[in-house]
Structures are given as structure tokens and as C-alpha cells.
């Protein structure tokens, strides 16, 4: 039973690492700021989300689990909003 939980953790965290990797590649390889923004916004949110998901079964207390979820939610919110802010700013004046 324990092993199954571990397996789930590993799978989720591994997938998370992959998304971080993908995000970085996008940030480096994509041709212009807007596409790079696209890569970043999708990838790092999913990456962190999967890591948090993988850690969730390992949380000792409900509060610890709640913190994981809140952290993810906060980053998701920030990521989405800043992506929009940067996107608008980019469209308005190339800077």
C-alpha cells in the first residue's frame, strides 16, 4: 500500500520535473517574447502543480496538505495574471 503511494508520488513529481524542463526549453528556444511567455505560463504552473500533487499524500496534517494546495493556487493565480500583464504590456509597446 505504501509502495503504491510512493509510486504515485514519484510519477507525479517526475511529470512535474518534466514540465519544468519543457518550460525552460521553451523559454530558451522559442523565437519571441510572446511565445516564450506562453511556454513559461503553461509549463511552470503544471510543473509546480504536479509536484504539489505528488507531495500531497505525504503531508502529515490537514494543515500541511492545505498549505500545499494554497501554494499551488497562489502560483496559478499569479502566473495567469502576470502572463496577461506581460502580454498586454508587450502588445502595447515593445520594451
Amino acid at each position: 500500500m505504501i509502495a503504491l503511494v510512493d509510486l504515485f508520488s514519484l510519477a507525479a513529481i517526475g511529470a512535474g520535473v518534466f514540465f519544468f524542463f519543457a518550460g525552460t526549453v521553451g523559454l530558451l528556444r522559442f523565437p519571441d517574447s510572446l511565445t516564450r511567455l506562453h511556454a513559461l505560463a503553461k509549463a511552470d504552473n503544471l510543473g509546480l502543480g504536479l509536484v504539489a500533487l505528488g507531495l500531497l499524500p505525504r503531508a502529515d496534517t490537514a494543515l500541511a496538505a492545505l498549505k500545499l494546495i494554497v501554494i499551488w493556487a497562489l502560483v496559478l493565480l499569479s502566473g495567469a495574471s502576470t502572463a496577461q500583464l506581460i502580454g498586454r504590456a508587450l502588445r502595447r509597446g515593445r520594451k
Binding site: 517574447s33 516564450r36 511552470d44 509536484v51 502566473g79 506581460i86
Partner: peptide
């Protein structure tokens, strides 16, 4: 802006590494 995006990615990655 590109520089700032790298910092944003670092922040998220830092949080993930911190949690792990």
C-alpha cells in the same frame, strides 16, 4: 521582460524545490 520571465520561472522552480 524576457529577463523577468526567467526570474518568474526561477521563483516557481524554487518553490517546488523548497517543498521537495
Amino acid at each position: 521582460v524576457d529577463r523577468l520571465m526567467a526570474v518568474q520561472l526561477l521563483g516557481t522552480g524554487g518553490i517546488a524545490a523548497l517543498l521537495l
